[in-house]
Design a protein around this nucleic acid. Sequence first.
DNA 1: AAAATAGTGTCTTTGAGACAGTATACT
DNA 2: AGTATACTGTCTCAAAGACACTATTTT
Lengths: 251, 251
Amino acid sequence: MPYDPSAFPPFAVTVDLVVLTVRRHALCALVVRRGESPYQGRWALPGGFVRGDEDLEAAAARELTEETGLLTHTPEGHDAGAHLEQLATYGDPQRDPRMRVVSVAHLVLAPDLPSPTAGGDVRSARWAPVDTLSCPGDGLAWEGEQQVPLAFDHDRILLDGVERARSKIEYSSLATAFCPPEFTVGELRRVYEAVWGVVLDPRNFHRKVTGTPGFLVPTGGTTTRQGGRPAQLFRAGGATLLNPPMLRPEV
Amino acid sequence: MPYDPSAFPPFAVTVDLVVLTVRRHALCALVVRRGESPYQGRWALPGGFVRGDEDLEAAAARELTEETGLLTHTPEGHDAGAHLEQLATYGDPQRDPRMRVVSVAHLVLAPDLPSPTAGGDVRSARWAPVDTLSCPGDGLAWEGEQQVPLAFDHDRILLDGVERARSKIEYSSLATAFCPPEFTVGELRRVYEAVWGVVLDPRNFHRKVTGTPGFLVPTGGTTTRQGGRPAQLFRAGGATLLNPPMLRPEV
DNA sequence: AAAATAGTGTCTTTGAGACAGTATACT
DNA sequence: AGTATACTGTCTCAAAGACACTATTTT
């Protein structure tokens, strides 16, 4: 039972971020171009080392702000900002050729922002539709006309993050994290359609989502930014768990 | 952007295990008594350091075998053995007073075994009903007549593991991981009742569970080990995701 | 007027939950 | 016989999905 704190192997601990948003009816992830070896010039998930006195979630929030300018709200805080939660930890001994690196991946859900990569170089960071970044199973990313895999094991991390987001909007109100503070039922429906890659019946969706207690709170305002008849504006209600859940259509 | 692998703070990486089983109609967790400082003499979750060339899941499986003699099957392997999956990672800078330790917690679901702590000292490892280990919120464990908290942040990890198990048996066939290779519908129902802490209608449960495609496969045999009319024996079917899910009764 | 989006109502089917009743063992 | 467990059937209610219809805007 070698629980001796002075005789431990040397590890580096990083955080990697799966930052998702919905742009032009497509689920997109933030990727940055690597400037250094290994995987120089390849696209990768944003991330970096955890500092010696820093909590894991704080490190993730710091990296997010550094790379996107986005602020986060923890599960309790209800300020404007992105949703941040821990995703999973990846620690294959060979995942970084330089040394043993354990990466604690985090998932960020953000609304579509005017300046998505504020503070960053346009050519070194971009939103990429997730279905162009990885075809399930082969882990390749489109680069011009040819597919290049993401750096490290980031294709796997991205896939896990996307699947987490897809399943979590079923039974939680997290889909509102993809929306601006005030949004319409139609905008929320387009979030579900983009994340799940399906088409939903607008009428049943409307009835379902407005009938789920605590999900949506009307603000009183209306908007015609989508064209057509003016739509009522809502903001996210207090409920975090949806009961009954939104059901993802089969097959 | 200090992504310099030679200038990283020193971390130790451990795995901690939330090992759950159902014994005498109660959900129980494996706890071991600490022999060393800090928290000497207190109950803690089993775990240990990840080796320099070892994958996280391999480290968790190794610790499990060392402390319980249990073998695991990964999601793919269908051998007899316990279910193992990653739970979450805990990295508060103050969680271990000796040094910076990041712990990757894993969840293990095991059937009730004849020798639950084989290979270990009886006084240094035991199955404890989870509701005696922690009352939600205060993180205390019963020790004789007084409650003593688990070591480190293990009360939080245990709570997260229990909640994961409770929610996961809703929409997956994972409840069968608590059962022996062949089991009856009644035994499976008692697993749900113990994990959720509720009473389920035996008739509706039977209809539901036998009607869910891929959940249960009849083996042809019967048993009377529960008394009463002989019950048909089943083993776990190929389905991992249940559709429709088992619904946990409200409130 | 035509097209687009928003919102309501109605019907059918599925499934959850309550519960009556039968079957087969052990004591 | 009495009791315990296993299993089947029936009824009711809630909700999902399909879809007809109305409302209010822009072009």
